[in-house]
Design a protein around this nucleic acid. Structure first.
Lengths: 183, 183
DNA sequence: GTCCACATGTAACTGGTTACATGATTGG
DNA sequence: CCAATCATGTAACCAGTTACATGTGGAC
C-alpha cells in the first residue's frame, strides 16, 4: 500500500501530470519506489475518486490532453497519517542469493559471469548516487528537508556499497573454488 | 518467476511435503525468499503438472494426507538452466525511505519511534544470522557447498549490518533536527 | 466422542507487469 | 499530409496476500 503515498509525496513536492510523474519516478523517488506509467495512471484515478487529489481546473478531461493533479487537504492528511504509522520492514527477497543457494546443489556454471555483471551494475548505481550527493547536498545546504532527503540518499549509498563489497568478496571466493560441474 | 526455483532448490536438498517446505521457508531459504503455505501448495501443483517434480509413490492423494515430493531430472535441468541465466537485480523498494521522503514535506511526527523499532528488528535479525554463522560454518567446514551457502549468509549479515549502521545514523540525525510540525 | 494439531487445499483480492490502443500536437 | 512525440489510457495476466474450508489421526 505504498504506491499511492509515493504519488502523494511527489505531488505535494510539485503538482504534475501522469507523464511528468512517470519521468520523476525514473529518478529521485523511483530510486527507492519504482513505478510504470500504467501503475501511475491507475493510481491517479483511484486517488482522485477517493478525493485525495484533484485535476487542476481549466483542463478538459480528454484523451491525449495533459491533465495535472494537485493534492487536496485530505490527501495531505492521509500522507501524514501513513508516514507516522508503524510498518514492518519487508523481508529480504533476492534472486541472486537464491541462485547461489541453488548453485550449491546444481553447480556454479554460468553464475560467475552474472556476478561480475551485477558488480558492474551496482558500481554504476553507486557512482550515480555519489554524483547526486555531490551535486544536491553540498555542506551549506542543511535545512531540515535537505537533511532528510540526504539521509535517504545515504541509505542508497550504504546499500550499494554493501552490495559491491559483497560481490567482490563472492568473486574472490569463486576464484578459489574448484570448477565444479555436477551435471 | 523465482518461487518455483526456490521450491526446486529446497526439494533437491531434501524431498519434502508441502507443510515441511513451509516450515523450511520460515528459516533458511525463507531468509532471502519467503513464501506462505498457500503459495507453496499452488506452486507444487504447477510443478507437478509440468513434470518437474512428482509425489513420492505409496501415498494416496487424499486431503489431510501427507504428500511428499521429489525433483525429477527435468526439474533439476530447469533449475540449472535458471541458475545460469543472466538476471537483472531488482530495483530497491523500501517503504521506510519513502516515509522519510514524505516526512520532509508533511513533518516527522511519529516516524522516529518506528526508526528505533526498525533498528531493534534489524539488530535482532543480524544477531540471528551471526548465531547461524557460528553454528553452521565453523572454519573446518569448507567444502564448495558450504562456501556457497556461507557466502549467501554473509550477504544477509552485510545487509543487516548496513541497515543497523544507517538507522543509528538516522536517529542521531533526528536528535539534531528541530522538532518540526508543519501540520 | 471431542478437541487439537497436522495437513492440504480454495476463493477472493491486490499490486505489479506486459502488451496494446487511442488521441493531440508539432516539425518537416 | 505524414511521422514522431507527447500524453492518457485499457486489458490480460501473474505473483503475493488474506481469509476461509476440509479432512486425518492421536491424546484425553
Amino acid at each position: 500500500m505504498s504506491l499511492p503515498h509515493a504519488i502523494l509525496t511527489a505531488l505535494v513536492e510539485k503538482p504534475s501530470s501522469g507523464l511528468e510523474l512517470t519521468r520523476r519516478f525514473d529518478k529521485s523517488i523511483g530510486y527507492f519506489w519504482s513505478a510504470t506509467h500504467q501503475q501511475i495512471y491507475r493510481e491517479l484515478g483511484r486517488l482522485e475518486a477517493q478525493g485525495l487529489i484533484r485535476a487542476l481546473p481549466a483542463q478538459q478531461p480528454a484523451r491525449g490532453q495533459k491533465k495535472s493533479y494537485e493534492v487536496l487537504p485530505a490527501g495531505r492528511d492521509e500522507l501524514a497519517r501513513w508516514t507516522a504509522a508503524a510498518q514492518d520492514p519487508r523481508p529480504l527477497r533476492d534472486a541472486m542469493l537464491l541462485r547461489l543457494r541453488a548453485a550449491a546443489v546444481v553447480g556454479t556454471t554460468g553464475i560467475e559471469a552474472d556476478l561480475r555483471r551485477h558488480l558492474e551494475l551496482h558500481e554504476r548505481q553507486l557512482s550515480e548516487y555519489e554524483e547526486i550527493e555531490k551535486r544536491d547536498f553540498p555542506p551549506e545546504k542543511d535545512g531540515p528537508e535537505d537533511r532528510l532527503r540526504h539521509l535517504v540518499l545515504r541509505a542508497g549509498i550504504d546499500l550499494e556499497t554493501s552490495w559491491t563489497r559483497w560481490l567482490r568478496h563472492a568473486l574472490a571466493e569463486f576464484a578459489e573454488l574448484p570448477g565444479d560441474d555436477p551435471s
